[in-house]
Design a protein around this nucleic acid. Structure first.
Lengths: 339, 339
DNA sequence: TCAAAGTACTAAACCGGTATACCACTGGTC
DNA sequence: GACCAGTGGTATACCGGTTTAGTACTTTGA
């Protein structure tokens, strides 16, 4: 008998059935070494007692925590409004949960903290692996995880990275599709407002947009870098519009940026889309909150999270990193780029 | 010596210093039983080897996981845009991290899953306690956590609950302040659009708004319940506006609702604030994305998360639940309720 | 001067699983 | 009838910490 309140252990089951802990462990894990009859009695006892494996005990024996770590580095003020992270967290959690794993999360304002958190998690054996997002050019986290030998998947990396699993995306076709869409509407002065140049994907998109623009128009496009802060996005846009030959269309690097601009179009002195067409990278219901609604390139964050998780799990099993592609982006045309 | 790649354990330290594991444990935990000299040598060795405690090993010994669980039940489509959850998660994580604990997160679409997840977490010894939000009237989760005896804090409960720690808020004064603000602008037909009646806080605010309205105007206000889906929020609003004596001001139960309405005001055939003043419960940068900007009652989600965590930690230590108040809400007046 | 108390440890059990070595018994085989 | 393989277990070590019981040595007090 197990006294009430105490959660049953395999020792309780062993005592009930009259076998040893070892036999119980074999039976519960479906491995040979116990007769069909004994196995059935053990499973019945486990069921009756309401036994569930202690994840800590199992982890200690396995030397595996069953958790995967994610450090979110974003200013707290931005955390709620930028939809990407919550969707990513939900997607990762869903995929991990399906594999009996869990997500260990840390939120910090300061990008420099991340490597230190990884180090602590790893040495405290809290995580089996990591998910990295928003890689920067020369990201110090890469050195940290490879030095420590932490199995890691980099989500949204511009290209494969040695020793890491990566989910990479080629933004070239999407950027060309953006230009084609806008050019098809008659625009020929098309600018782009990008995230901070420090982000690897921003730098890469910057180059690819320039290349696509040259192919199409034979000239270099105007591009600005800005942080994801309303004032700065508007300031960057204003600067573009102050040009003697101002752009008639702008591609923004996130839906939040684009929505901010459409929301403040009157303050900028432009009408959307008559004076300025606005096109967003990333799509979310935010794009439907403002008028006109914002055209955007959607991608499937859930699917990308699941891809990252399956690569990481595979790497944990086999020891060798894998590579996959981000889900493709599809254009949803709304009012902000209406003809 | 520890071979490279292996993370050092207290046994390694013990071998280095020439003492037993027990002595090392005493020294590292700052408890009596070792001389100052030995303690210093042990700490030095730990430092030199880069030792950090294994949280799993410690958990197994403690019978405590060091984690607190939160189940987020929201349709995935809504998860990204509703800022509350990401802010709550960040706030909880911050407070837990400061105490050396971590947040175990599950995301599910279906409210009925939560109790089952709690049960699994508890029997697998994954969590020491839980944070509950968005309590429903007759919430089945309450029975689950009290049956299982899981230490739990209910965040945003309408009132104290037996056996649980609670962070409660009295919305009465805030609702009166909302009415005062709007009445001060000359409004006397003030309606309210609330979240689903199944939520305890929605039901309670419904009653308190009615009471405050009666005190001020002597009549019962028009109130509608709706889910947090754009179409339904607009439909509920349209229904209010179809009244022969339509409201000139509406208080919405979330910033997302209010922003949706302001964003779609043209489609509703009203001008904000000329025809319809809009006031939001909850504030976030979303309120600044639309024109006019949305007036809102802000509250400090971070602080409330920290309060919940500290109550729960106290309950884990002492065994007795505690109670505290939600942070007060403060009104930020913006264009949607301009005079 | 000798018992009592304190100090600084060691040895070993324990948390709840997993994994490995070994043992008893059965049945088939040459 | 001895040898072998296979079956169904038992006993035990192990993961990396914490904790308790026990012990050798020093200090204190009457």
């Amino acid at each position: 008998m197990v006294e009430p309140g105490r959660r049953p252990t395999i020792a309780d089951i062993a005592r009930e059935v009259g076998v040893t802990k070892g036999a119980v462990s074999f039976a519960l894990n479906g491995r040979p070494g116990v007769s069909a009859d004994t196995r059935a009695r053990i499973l019945a006892a486990a069921e009756r007692l309401g036994w569930r494996p202690s994840t800590v005990a199992r982890s200690l024996s396995n030397l595996r925590s069953g958790s995967v770590g994610l450090v979110v580095t974003r200013p707290r003020s931005l955390l709620g409004v930028e939809p990407f992270y919550m969707r990513l967290i939900a997607g990762l959690e869903r995929a991990l949960h399906a594999d009996g794993r869990s997500l260990l999360l840390a939120v910090t304002d300061h990008p420099g903290d991340a490597a230190e958190i990884y180090r602590a998690w790893w040495s405290e054996r809290r995580v089996d692996g990591l998910v990295l997002t928003d890689l920067r050019t020369d990201d110090p986290r890469l050195a940290a995880v490879t030095d420590l030998g932490i199995p890691t998947v980099a989500l949204g990396a511009p290209g494969p990275l040695p020793g890491l699993s990566t989910v990479t995306g080629d933004d070239g076709p999407t950027l060309r599709a953006a230009l084609d869409h806008l050019a098809g509407l008659g625009h020929h002065r098309i600018a782009r407002v990008s995230g901070p140049a420090g982000f690897a994907h921003a730098a890469r998109r910057h180059a690819e947009f320039a290349a696509a623009h040259r192919t199409l128009f034979g000239t270099d496009p105007r591009q600005a870098h800005t942080r994801y802060v309303a004032d700065q996005v508007l300031a960057a846009t204003r600067e573009l519009l102050d040009d003697p030959e101002p752009p008639t269309a702008v591609v923004y690097d996130s839906d939040l940026m684009a929505v901010t601009v459409v929301g403040s179009a009157a303050e900028l002195g432009v009408r959307v889309p008559a004076d300025l067409a606005v096109l967003a990278w990333d799509d979310s219901p935010l794009c439907e909150l403002v008028r006109p609604r914002v055209s955007a390139f959607a991608h499937d964050v859930d699917a990308d999270g699941a891809t990252a998780v399956s690569l990481l799990i595979e790497q944990l099993r086999t020891g060798t990193p894998g590579h996959a592609e981000l889900s493709p982006r599809t254009l949803t045309v709304r009012g902000s780029t209406a003809g």
